[in-house]
Protein backbone atom coordinates (compact mmCIF):
# COMPACT_ATOMS: atom_id res chain seq x y z
CA UNK A 1 0.00 0.00 0.00
CA UNK A 2 1.84 3.04 -1.25
CA UNK A 3 1.11 6.71 -1.15
CA UNK A 4 2.01 9.11 -3.91
CA UNK A 5 5.66 9.98 -4.44
CA UNK A 6 4.65 13.56 -3.82
CA UNK A 7 2.67 13.92 -0.61
CA UNK A 8 1.37 16.75 1.47
CA UNK A 9 2.39 17.42 5.03
CA UNK A 10 -0.04 18.60 7.64
CA UNK A 11 -0.19 18.02 11.40
CA UNK A 12 -3.89 17.15 11.71
CA UNK A 13 -5.67 17.38 8.35
CA UNK A 14 -5.26 13.69 7.33
CA UNK A 15 -6.79 12.57 10.64
CA UNK A 16 -9.72 14.88 10.13
CA UNK A 17 -10.21 13.52 6.60
CA UNK A 18 -10.41 9.87 7.62
CA UNK A 19 -12.40 10.61 10.76
CA UNK A 20 -15.98 10.54 9.33
CA UNK A 21 -15.50 7.17 7.70
CA UNK A 22 -13.73 5.73 10.72
CA UNK A 23 -16.47 6.86 13.10
CA UNK A 24 -19.15 5.23 10.96
CA UNK A 25 -17.04 2.10 10.58
CA UNK A 26 -16.38 1.74 14.31
CA UNK A 27 -19.92 2.56 15.44
CA UNK A 28 -21.90 0.59 12.89
CA UNK A 29 -19.51 -2.15 11.77
CA UNK A 30 -16.70 -3.03 14.14
CA UNK A 31 -18.56 -2.52 17.41
CA UNK A 32 -21.68 -4.50 16.34
CA UNK A 33 -19.52 -7.26 14.86
CA UNK A 34 -17.58 -7.59 18.11
CA UNK A 35 -20.88 -7.60 20.00
CA UNK A 36 -22.04 -10.50 17.83
CA UNK A 37 -18.81 -12.33 18.62
CA UNK A 38 -19.28 -11.64 22.33
CA UNK A 39 -22.95 -12.61 22.44
CA UNK A 40 -22.26 -15.80 20.56
CA UNK A 41 -20.54 -17.22 23.63
CA UNK A 42 -23.28 -16.13 26.04
CA UNK A 43 -26.64 -17.57 26.90
CA UNK A 44 -29.44 -15.24 27.91
CA UNK A 45 -32.68 -16.38 29.49
CA UNK A 46 -35.85 -15.31 27.65
CA UNK A 47 -36.57 -12.43 30.04
CA UNK A 48 -33.08 -11.00 29.75
CA UNK A 49 -32.53 -11.34 33.49
CA UNK A 50 -29.60 -13.67 33.57
CA UNK A 51 -26.64 -13.98 31.24
CA UNK A 52 -24.18 -16.85 31.52
CA UNK A 53 -20.97 -17.61 29.70
CA UNK A 54 -21.39 -20.82 27.75
CA UNK A 55 -18.27 -20.99 25.57
CA UNK A 56 -18.85 -22.78 22.29
CA UNK A 57 -22.21 -24.21 23.39
CA UNK A 58 -24.24 -22.00 21.05
CA UNK A 59 -22.22 -23.22 18.09
CA UNK A 60 -22.36 -26.86 19.15
CA UNK A 61 -26.09 -26.54 19.64
CA UNK A 62 -26.49 -25.01 16.17
CA UNK A 63 -24.71 -27.87 14.48
CA UNK A 64 -26.90 -30.33 16.31
CA UNK A 65 -30.06 -28.44 15.43
CA UNK A 66 -31.77 -30.20 12.51
CA UNK A 67 -33.53 -26.93 11.57
CA UNK A 68 -30.22 -25.10 11.24
CA UNK A 69 -28.66 -27.89 9.23
CA UNK A 70 -31.74 -27.95 7.00
CA UNK A 71 -31.43 -24.20 6.53
CA UNK A 72 -27.79 -24.65 5.52
CA UNK A 73 -28.78 -27.26 2.97
CA UNK A 74 -31.61 -25.07 1.67
CA UNK A 75 -29.20 -22.16 1.22
CA UNK A 76 -26.66 -24.28 -0.64
CA UNK A 77 -29.35 -25.65 -2.98
CA UNK A 78 -30.80 -22.18 -3.52
CA UNK A 79 -27.39 -20.56 -4.15
CA UNK A 80 -26.20 -23.22 -6.59
CA UNK A 81 -29.49 -23.31 -8.48
CA UNK A 82 -29.59 -19.51 -8.72
CA UNK A 83 -25.97 -19.25 -9.85
CA UNK A 84 -26.34 -22.05 -12.40
CA UNK A 85 -29.60 -20.76 -13.87
CA UNK A 86 -28.53 -17.13 -14.04
CA UNK A 87 -25.01 -17.79 -15.31
CA UNK A 88 -26.06 -20.19 -18.06
CA UNK A 89 -28.86 -17.96 -19.33
CA UNK A 90 -26.66 -14.85 -19.23
CA UNK A 91 -23.80 -16.67 -20.95
CA UNK A 92 -26.06 -17.90 -23.75
CA UNK A 93 -27.52 -14.44 -24.27
CA UNK A 94 -24.12 -12.72 -24.11
CA UNK A 95 -22.53 -15.11 -26.61
CA UNK A 96 -25.42 -14.64 -29.01
CA UNK A 97 -25.52 -10.86 -28.48
CA UNK A 98 -21.77 -10.68 -29.14
CA UNK A 99 -22.24 -12.47 -32.46
CA UNK A 100 -24.92 -10.22 -33.94
CA UNK A 101 -24.04 -7.07 -35.81
CA UNK A 102 -27.29 -5.17 -35.56
CA UNK A 103 -29.15 -4.36 -32.36
CA UNK A 104 -26.38 -5.14 -29.86
CA UNK A 105 -26.97 -1.84 -28.08
CA UNK A 106 -30.70 -2.46 -27.86
CA UNK A 107 -30.29 -5.94 -26.38
CA UNK A 108 -27.78 -4.73 -23.82
CA UNK A 109 -30.07 -1.82 -22.96
CA UNK A 110 -32.90 -4.19 -22.09
CA UNK A 111 -30.79 -6.81 -20.30
CA UNK A 112 -29.74 -4.30 -17.63
CA UNK A 113 -33.33 -3.58 -16.56
CA UNK A 114 -33.57 -6.22 -13.81
CA UNK A 115 -30.52 -4.74 -12.06
CA UNK A 116 -32.57 -1.64 -11.26
CA UNK A 117 -35.39 -3.65 -9.70
CA UNK A 118 -35.09 -4.16 -5.93
CA UNK A 119 -34.83 -7.82 -4.85
CA UNK A 120 -38.02 -7.39 -2.82
CA UNK A 121 -39.90 -6.03 -5.83
CA UNK A 122 -38.46 -8.72 -8.12
CA UNK A 123 -39.72 -11.32 -5.66
CA UNK A 124 -43.18 -9.77 -5.59
CA UNK A 125 -43.39 -9.64 -9.42
CA UNK A 126 -42.74 -13.36 -9.72
CA UNK A 127 -44.85 -14.12 -6.65
CA UNK A 128 -47.76 -12.53 -8.49
CA UNK A 129 -47.08 -14.33 -11.79
CA UNK A 130 -47.00 -17.68 -10.01
CA UNK A 131 -49.96 -16.97 -7.74
CA UNK A 132 -52.08 -20.16 -7.86
CA UNK A 133 -55.37 -18.32 -8.41
CA UNK A 134 -54.52 -15.22 -10.45
CA UNK A 135 -50.98 -15.78 -11.74
CA UNK A 136 -50.39 -16.22 -15.42
CA UNK A 137 -47.48 -18.64 -15.00
CA UNK A 138 -49.46 -20.80 -12.60
CA UNK A 139 -52.26 -20.83 -15.16
CA UNK A 140 -49.90 -21.97 -17.92
CA UNK A 141 -48.40 -24.67 -15.70
CA UNK A 142 -51.88 -25.86 -14.69
CA UNK A 143 -52.60 -26.50 -18.38
CA UNK A 144 -49.86 -29.13 -18.42
CA UNK A 145 -51.67 -30.96 -15.64
CA UNK A 146 -49.37 -29.98 -12.77
CA UNK A 147 -51.11 -28.13 -9.96
CA UNK A 148 -48.70 -25.32 -9.03
CA UNK A 149 -48.96 -24.13 -5.44
CA UNK A 150 -46.06 -22.46 -3.69
CA UNK A 151 -48.13 -22.05 -0.53
CA UNK A 152 -48.22 -25.80 0.03
CA UNK A 153 -45.40 -27.25 -1.98
CA UNK A 154 -41.85 -26.55 -0.77
CA UNK A 155 -40.26 -27.37 -4.12
CA UNK A 156 -42.57 -24.94 -5.90
CA UNK A 157 -41.65 -22.23 -3.41
CA UNK A 158 -37.95 -22.93 -3.86
CA UNK A 159 -38.29 -22.77 -7.66
CA UNK A 160 -40.09 -19.46 -7.29
CA UNK A 161 -37.41 -17.74 -5.20
CA UNK A 162 -34.68 -19.23 -7.41
CA UNK A 163 -36.27 -17.79 -10.55
CA UNK A 164 -36.69 -14.37 -8.89
CA UNK A 165 -33.06 -14.28 -7.74
CA UNK A 166 -31.69 -15.57 -11.06
CA UNK A 167 -33.77 -13.06 -13.02
CA UNK A 168 -32.38 -10.25 -10.92
CA UNK A 169 -28.77 -11.38 -11.49
CA UNK A 170 -29.07 -11.74 -15.29
CA UNK A 171 -28.12 -8.09 -15.89
CA UNK A 172 -24.91 -8.27 -13.95
CA UNK A 173 -23.82 -11.59 -15.44
CA UNK A 174 -24.74 -10.53 -18.96
CA UNK A 175 -22.68 -7.31 -18.76
CA UNK A 176 -19.59 -9.07 -17.41
CA UNK A 177 -19.83 -11.95 -19.89
CA UNK A 178 -20.23 -9.51 -22.76
CA UNK A 179 -17.17 -7.55 -21.61
CA UNK A 180 -15.25 -10.83 -21.27
CA UNK A 181 -16.26 -11.91 -24.77
CA UNK A 182 -15.24 -8.61 -26.28
CA UNK A 183 -11.78 -9.06 -24.77
CA UNK A 184 -11.21 -12.32 -26.67
CA UNK A 185 -9.08 -11.63 -29.78
CA UNK A 186 -11.27 -12.00 -32.86
CA UNK A 187 -8.34 -13.53 -34.75
CA UNK A 188 -8.56 -16.67 -32.59
CA UNK A 189 -12.20 -17.19 -33.46
CA UNK A 190 -11.61 -16.46 -37.13
CA UNK A 191 -8.74 -18.95 -37.21
CA UNK A 192 -11.06 -21.61 -35.84
CA UNK A 193 -13.73 -20.64 -38.35
CA UNK A 194 -11.23 -21.07 -41.20
CA UNK A 195 -10.41 -24.50 -39.81
CA UNK A 196 -14.12 -25.15 -40.34
CA UNK A 197 -15.09 -25.44 -36.69
CA UNK A 198 -18.82 -24.85 -36.29
CA UNK A 199 -20.19 -22.27 -33.84
CA UNK A 200 -20.87 -24.82 -31.10
CA UNK A 201 -17.44 -26.37 -31.37
CA UNK A 202 -15.86 -22.90 -31.43
CA UNK A 203 -17.71 -22.07 -28.24
CA UNK A 204 -16.63 -25.12 -26.25
CA UNK A 205 -13.01 -25.30 -27.46
CA UNK A 206 -12.08 -21.61 -27.59
CA UNK A 207 -14.58 -19.19 -26.12
CA UNK A 208 -15.60 -21.07 -22.98
CA UNK A 209 -12.05 -21.84 -21.78
CA UNK A 210 -10.95 -18.24 -22.43
CA UNK A 211 -13.94 -16.97 -20.49
CA UNK A 212 -13.24 -19.14 -17.46
CA UNK A 213 -11.72 -16.33 -15.32
CA UNK A 214 -14.88 -14.27 -15.86
CA UNK A 215 -17.09 -17.28 -15.16
CA UNK A 216 -15.26 -18.05 -11.94
CA UNK A 217 -15.46 -14.45 -10.77
CA UNK A 218 -19.18 -14.32 -11.56
CA UNK A 219 -19.74 -17.64 -9.81
CA UNK A 220 -18.35 -16.18 -6.57
CA UNK A 221 -20.37 -12.98 -6.99
CA UNK A 222 -23.58 -14.93 -7.63
CA UNK A 223 -23.08 -17.19 -4.63
CA UNK A 224 -22.42 -14.16 -2.41
CA UNK A 225 -25.57 -12.57 -3.79
CA UNK A 226 -27.69 -15.68 -3.17
CA UNK A 227 -26.28 -16.11 0.34
CA UNK A 228 -26.50 -12.55 1.59
CA UNK A 229 -28.62 -10.31 -0.59
CA UNK A 230 -31.72 -12.41 -1.03
CA UNK A 231 -33.27 -11.81 2.37
CA UNK A 232 -35.73 -9.41 0.75
CA UNK A 233 -36.89 -11.94 -1.84
CA UNK A 234 -37.68 -14.54 0.81
CA UNK A 235 -39.13 -12.12 3.35
CA UNK A 236 -41.40 -10.36 0.85
CA UNK A 237 -42.74 -13.59 -0.67
CA UNK A 238 -42.53 -17.03 0.94
CA UNK A 239 -41.55 -15.85 4.45
CA UNK A 240 -39.37 -18.92 4.71
CA UNK A 241 -42.25 -21.30 4.11
CA UNK A 242 -44.06 -23.47 3.51
CA UNK A 243 -42.79 -24.91 6.80
CA UNK A 244 -39.04 -24.30 6.71
CA UNK A 245 -38.59 -25.06 3.03
CA UNK A 246 -37.26 -21.68 1.93
CA UNK A 247 -35.67 -20.59 5.21
CA UNK A 248 -32.23 -19.55 3.99
CA UNK A 249 -29.49 -18.65 6.48
CA UNK A 250 -29.89 -14.85 6.36
CA UNK A 251 -33.62 -15.25 6.86
CA UNK A 252 -33.14 -17.58 9.82
CA UNK A 253 -30.64 -15.27 11.54
CA UNK A 254 -33.16 -12.44 11.31
CA UNK A 255 -36.10 -14.55 12.51
CA UNK A 256 -34.22 -16.11 15.42
CA UNK A 257 -33.13 -12.66 16.58
CA UNK A 258 -36.28 -10.63 16.07
CA UNK A 259 -39.08 -13.18 16.33
CA UNK A 260 -37.74 -16.09 18.36
CA UNK A 261 -35.56 -13.74 20.50
CA UNK A 262 -32.83 -16.35 20.70
CA UNK A 263 -29.95 -13.88 21.07
CA UNK A 264 -27.08 -16.29 21.65
CA UNK A 265 -28.18 -18.59 18.84
CA UNK A 266 -28.67 -15.71 16.44
CA UNK A 267 -25.28 -14.23 17.33
CA UNK A 268 -23.63 -17.59 16.71
CA UNK A 269 -25.34 -17.72 13.31
CA UNK A 270 -24.04 -14.19 12.60
CA UNK A 271 -20.52 -15.31 13.39
CA UNK A 272 -20.80 -18.29 11.02
CA UNK A 273 -22.12 -15.99 8.29
CA UNK A 274 -19.21 -13.61 8.88
CA UNK A 275 -16.77 -16.48 8.41
CA UNK A 276 -18.48 -17.36 5.12
CA UNK A 277 -18.29 -13.74 3.87
CA UNK A 278 -14.63 -13.47 4.86
CA UNK A 279 -13.83 -16.71 3.00
CA UNK A 280 -15.68 -15.47 -0.10
CA UNK A 281 -13.90 -12.09 0.03
CA UNK A 282 -10.52 -13.79 0.27
CA UNK A 283 -11.35 -15.96 -2.76
CA UNK A 284 -12.48 -12.89 -4.68
CA UNK A 285 -9.32 -10.95 -3.86
CA UNK A 286 -7.00 -13.82 -4.74
CA UNK A 287 -8.74 -13.97 -8.10
CA UNK A 288 -8.19 -10.25 -8.64
CA UNK A 289 -4.50 -10.60 -7.80
CA UNK A 290 -4.18 -13.24 -10.48
CA UNK A 291 -6.00 -11.02 -12.95
CA UNK A 292 -3.49 -8.24 -12.30
CA UNK A 293 -0.58 -10.56 -13.11
CA UNK A 294 -1.91 -11.40 -16.57
Amino acid sequence: MRTKRVTFRHPWLPYLLVLPQLIITVVFFIWPASQALYQSVLQQDPFGLKVTFVGMDNFIELFHDPLYLASFKTTVIFASATAFLSLSLALLLAVVADSVVKGKGFYQGVMIWPYAVAPAVAGVLWWFMFNPTVGIMAYVIDQTGYKWNHFLNGTDAMILITISAAWKQISYNFLFFLAGLQAIPKSLIEAAAIDAAGPIKRFWTIIFPLLSPTTFFLLVVNIVFAFFETFAIVHATTAGGPGQDTTILVYKVWRDAFEALDLGGSAAQSVILMIIVIAMTVIQFRYIERKVEY
Partner: peptide, 21 residues
Protein backbone atom coordinates in the same frame (compact mmCIF):
# COMPACT_ATOMS: atom_id res chain seq x y z
CA UNK B 1 -10.44 -0.65 9.37
CA UNK B 2 -12.09 0.54 6.17
CA UNK B 3 -11.19 -2.69 4.39
CA UNK B 4 -12.92 -4.78 7.06
CA UNK B 5 -16.32 -3.25 6.23
CA UNK B 6 -16.23 -5.29 3.01
CA UNK B 7 -16.59 -8.39 5.08
CA UNK B 8 -19.47 -7.30 7.29
CA UNK B 9 -22.69 -6.77 5.31
CA UNK B 10 -25.63 -5.70 7.45
CA UNK B 11 -27.25 -9.13 7.14
CA UNK B 12 -24.51 -10.77 9.22
CA UNK B 13 -24.39 -8.31 12.11
CA UNK B 14 -28.02 -7.47 12.11
CA UNK B 15 -29.10 -7.56 15.75
CA UNK B 16 -26.13 -5.70 17.31
CA UNK B 17 -26.26 -3.02 14.59
CA UNK B 18 -29.94 -2.55 15.36
CA UNK B 19 -29.12 -2.25 19.08
CA UNK B 20 -26.43 0.37 18.45
CA UNK B 21 -28.81 2.39 16.30
Amino acid sequence: MIFITLMLPVEVRILPTYEVT
